[in-house]
């Protein structure tokens, strides 16, 4: 038994030794700063002076002031819409690439889908302004085709524009996990379902979709959580009623010089999206068993 203990010790030690620089980096620059933000959210700031007495004042303010309530609710709503739209857009594409594209051309398709993501982030958002604007591409085309008489104004500087722009930004991130989940499905399972009497639609609902759910759940989490943190998109295309909680967080940290309140808002937002995500994952737990 001593020999085994020796072996395990050496393997354990090698593993920990190798991983430690990366781990230490993450602890110093992720865990410690997050702890700091948590501490900060219980303090108060008066211009540049930081009062380190424990207080719940920031949280009370963050959760009771109507402006923060509105922004928080709107942010959650927009994130939810973005996630739903992204998944709806992504699923057929992932399905097409997995089931219709020949094996050899799949990597090329995945590459094609990820390309637009590498257009400059700011430029991409700005271009949606050009596309959706009063004299933009959409209005221009629709006027030219005679579909509308007047340029549409409800497509820019509001929440719709924010949802569309964010969905565009996140759609490659949703396609990839769904595609991977679809690729993992043993094709003979589908043949078995057909053999046992299922038509294409019933087969899709009873076999394909449940087996693709792990990918859908992963895509949802990957899109939903980070979306809450975007402050550029709402600022550029959202108009006054399209601003989100992140714009407020940025404001508190930069111009308003109230970092403790900003921290409380950021943590509250994180808390809310995490809870929503966990509930979503929990609701789908039956699809996730048996996955590694």
């Amino acid at each position: 038994m001593s020999g085994f203990a020796k072996w395990r010790r050496s393997e354990e030690a090698s593993g920990w030794l190798l991983v430690s620089p990366t781990l230490v980096y993450s602890i110093l620059l992720l865990a410690a700063p997050l702890a700091m933000v948590i501490a900060l959210s219980f303090w108060t700031q008066d211009y540049l002076d930081l009062d380190k007495t424990f207080t719940l004042k920031n949280y009370i303010e963050a959760w009771s002031e109507p402006i923060y309530q509105t922004l928080m609710a709107r942010s959650l709503k927009i994130s939810a819409f973005v996630t739903a739209l992204t998944i709806l857009l992504a699923f057929p594409v992932a399905y097409y690439v997995s089931f219709y594209v020949p094996q050899k051309r799949k990597p090329l398709w995945i590459f094609l889908i990820t390309i637009p993501f590498w257009t400059s982030y700011l430029m991409r958002i700005f271009l949606w302004k050009v596309i959706l604007g009063y004299n933009g591409v959409v209005n221009g085309s629709l006027l030219g085709l005679g579909v509308i008489e007047q340029p549409l104004s409800f497509i820019l500087y509001n929440q719709n524009a924010v949802v569309v722009t964010l969905a565009h930004a996140w759609v490659p991130f949703a396609i990839l996990p769904i595609f991977v989940a679809l690729e993992k499905i043993d094709r003979s399972l589908l043949e078995a379902a057909e053999d046992l009497g299922d038509g294409p639609l019933r087969r899709f609902i009873r076999v394909t979709l449940p087996l693709a759910m792990p990918g859908v759940v992963a895509a949802t989490v990957i899109v939903f959580i980070p979306t809450i943190g975007d402050y550029v998109t709402p600022r550029l295309v959202g108009g006054p009623n399209g601003l989100m909680i992140s714009n407020m967080i940025e404001l508190q940290f930069k111009k308003a010089n109230n970092a403790p309140l900003g921290a409380a808002l950021a943590l509250s937002a994180m808390f809310l999206v995490s809870v929503v995500s966990l509930v979503f994952v929990w609701m789908n737990r039956k699809y996730l068993v048996g996955q590694k």
Partner: peptide, 12 residues
């Protein structure tokens, strides 16, 4: 969310 990374590093 990247804003969390940005904010927390800024604070530290």
């Amino acid at each position: 969310p990247e804003i969390i990374v940005g904010v927390s590093l800024l604070v530290v």
